[in-house]
Write a protein that binds this DNA or RNA. Structure first.
Lengths: 191, 191
DNA sequence: CATTATATACTGACTGGTCGGTAGGTAAAC
DNA sequence: GTTTACCTACCGACCAGTCAGTATATAATG
């Protein structure tokens, strides 16, 4: 792993365990086995590093969603599939999502705008997945937007409470997610 | 309003708009029209003020839940009723919940434990509401815990995305919440 | 009634420490 | 000899918390 990547990884770990504001550049470079000078050789500022981390995370998530949108599967399969893939990715690198879901909303206005920008796109992609299910007659109940909100809200909760705070295993997290989705979707199609 | 309350209100507003770490004691007292000395006359530390704010919020939420648990209504009515009351309270004092849902998870370990402690109790209370529905045969599908997660996750999303980021009106927020709950519950009972 | 004592509710200057960012240097690679 | 990839030392800003002092109200004493 090169120096730049080492800095990014150290920052992810520290941001997620101590928060952005409570982590100093000094600490990041200490963990990466480098000096402050090296940090400012690779990054313009602490904020810029944060933005890069967030953009990386968000792009990864979006690309998972896009790849499931392109597949020729039912809406239900796409929803379940992309969530499973997302959570598995999250688990490998647990620190990432935390930063996105919480840290961004706790700090300066510019970070909040970043959250908003990515979240809008993610919401739109999930909206497409769900909308397709309605068009094809897979889903009949409720409005697509409500379904999107239910899925997003549930996923976030599973992530925070199970994966982050309870330290559940990947297996447990996936089971929980499957059960919740089953609940949402079966409820949805049974009427 | 007395000085202590003025400090608490200024802090709520600033914490929620700029984050705990990005708000200085200096700024809080400036907004409250007081001096730093006054702050430390009423509070031991910035952390202690935060804890007091969080405890106040959490207790209010719990007392709403308890009062609905005591009423002789169906599980569905209790769930819908307490959420409506909670969101209405939230709306009046929008700054509160933000601090609880996000700020606590972004900072030091002691704050995270505080979140965990309150959240466990809130989860238990909602668990009682939901469990009663299962006992009485009101709900038949899924596990109670999954239903609790769905409701909590959905509520948090509605709060953040609608109330906080979109600046939706109380009416819009309540409508959204009602629709989502309808979705969850109707799905639940129709099988 | 006047004086003294004490508690309450602050003020604002100061301190010790932290942290983001910079400047200037160095050693290896090309 | 120039560029790359760093390191060390430092600066200035900020900030939580302290502390000595003050003004006002209330109570105790002579």
């Amino acid at each position: 792993m090169n120096a730049r990547e080492r800095i990014i990884n150290a920052a992810k770990e520290l941001f997620s365990s101590k928060g952005y504001s409570n982590t100093s550049v000094e600490e990041i470079v200490r963990h990466a086995g480098l000096s402050k000078g090296a940090f400012y050789f690779y990054f313009d500022s602490k904020d810029q590093l944060m933005e890069e981390i967030v953009n990386q995370m968000a792009e990864k998530t979006k690309s998972i969603m896009r790849s499931w949108l392109e597949r020729d599967v039912s809406s239900e399969e796409a929803i379940k599939g992309h969530i499973e893939e997302f959570l598995t990715e999250c688990y490998e690198d647990r620190h990432i999502a935390y930063v996105f879901f919480f840290e961004l909303l706790c700090s300066k206005e510019s970070f909040r705008r970043l959250y908003y920008k990515h979240m809008e796109e993610i919401r739109a992609l999930l909206g497409q997945m769900v909308g397709r299910g309605y068009e094809r007659g897979e889903f009949r109940r409720g409005r697509p937007e409500t379904l999107v909100n239910l899925i997003l809200g549930y996923m976030r909760l599973v992530y925070v409470e199970k994966l982050l705070l309870n330290g559940a295993s990947l297996k447990e997290v996936l089971e929980e997610a499957r059960e919740g989705l089953e609940f949402i979707l079966r409820g949805l199609t049974c009427g």
